[in-house]
Design a protein around this nucleic acid. Sequence first.
RNA 1: GUGAGCGUAGCUCAACUGGUCAGAGCACUGGACUGUGGAUCCAGGUGUUGGGGGUUCAAGUCCCCUCGCUCACCCCA
Length: 422
Amino acid sequence: MEIKAPRGTRDILGEEVALWQYLEEVVRRNAHLFGYEEIRTPVFEHTELFARGVGEETDIVQKEMYTFTDKGGRSITLRPEGTAPVVRAYLEHGFFVRDPRVRWYYLGPMFRYERPQAGRMRQFHQFGFEALGFQDPACDAEIILLAWTIYRELGLSDLSLELNSIGCPLCKPHYVRRLREYLESRKDVLCENCKRRLVENPLRVLDCKNETCQAVFREASFPSIQDFLCTECRRHEERLFSLLTRLGIPFVVNPRLVRGLDYYTRTVFEVKVHTLGAQDAIGGGGRYDGLARVLGGPEVPGVGFAAGMERIVLLLERSGFPRKDAFRVYLAPQDEEGEKDLLALSQVLHEAGIPFCLDFASKNLRYHLKRAQKMGVRFVVIAGEEERKNEGFSLKDLASGEQMLLSREELLGRLRKEREAC
RNA sequence: GUGAGCGUAGCUCAACUGGUCAGAGCACUGGACUGUGGAUCCAGGUGUUGGGGGUUCAAGUCCCCUCGCUCACCCCA
């Protein structure tokens, strides 16, 4: 086979589809219950949206974007994340004057050019929520509660919620300055990567998993962002903590959690799972009060969350997602007349909302029964010479083996009842 | 982008140090079985051994390149 799906992409088919549909259904239902409405933004945007919205300094913009020039000479990028497009849509449609407070959710493919590995694809899927126009920390709590509710309904356990505040334009620079000074003084022991990041983006140094760097972070005099928060940021954070505690959502404060996107202010959080290997983050988000401004709009507070669906599906597969065979009826004609009768019957079944699968008359009954069984179908409707003589259909229950000759009405009644019981 | 491991049938895997090596099981298709499933038996596609080049009398096996997969780094979802 010469043509394969491009690297980092894959087909979702067979039994896995049911899992995705289930996940999507849980997301949609819970979002709806929390008052979030769906928004569908384009899969590609002007490159500038992400360059500005996500941040020039981020890995996403510097090395992970699928960018190309279209035939009109525009620089276009396949969306690497969902927040910037959502905020763009908010601004473009003038929500800030018309209806400044919105709660939206989205669901769909994202694209990042990276080396694939477990739980990381070039085309991957996220669902996410964005609440725009709310500056109250209760909104941060609501978003986290919604995410947490979904994880719980999916039956995912052993999750940890890490929380931090990275301040605002008032207090963050003080911390960054202090952090840079401190790291500067310990530069000799930092890894090469951190030395580089120290200049470009000191906050990202905190992400380093290198053991010697970690040792530096653990030093008693190492500055913590928590000690640099301004009064407003501190109040916001404390309020969020108390709300989460009230909601019974366990969390740990990780003063070194900074997250990859430039636009965050105050609250940042990440949901991790310990059983996924290196790609252990299954969701994350935070507050981005400055983003709308960066995109040329007015000051609009916002808070959001996004989760990786591939990673969740991996967990669901492992947890033995309950598979039940869908109710379906197999139609097995014995000759061309039977084929005609069953094709006509399929119209009636369709109207009654009973799923069916019609096979054709070129095969013998043995074949049909084998096939129905392999498909996991329990009921087989047979139409042939015998059935025509009695003006009805035979219904065979593959589970019990029993078979009976029924009129069309009796058959429909029986199938309706069986579907209810299913 | 960096590093490591691995590529044989749709799937799971064999083939000792280069020498009947192109195989087994599952799955698939047809038949034994013309209208009664799970079983059995028989027959059969199961394939450019990922691709290309090289060494050799001889390459699935050794060497080089390339592509892909997997894992890790990086970073994130």
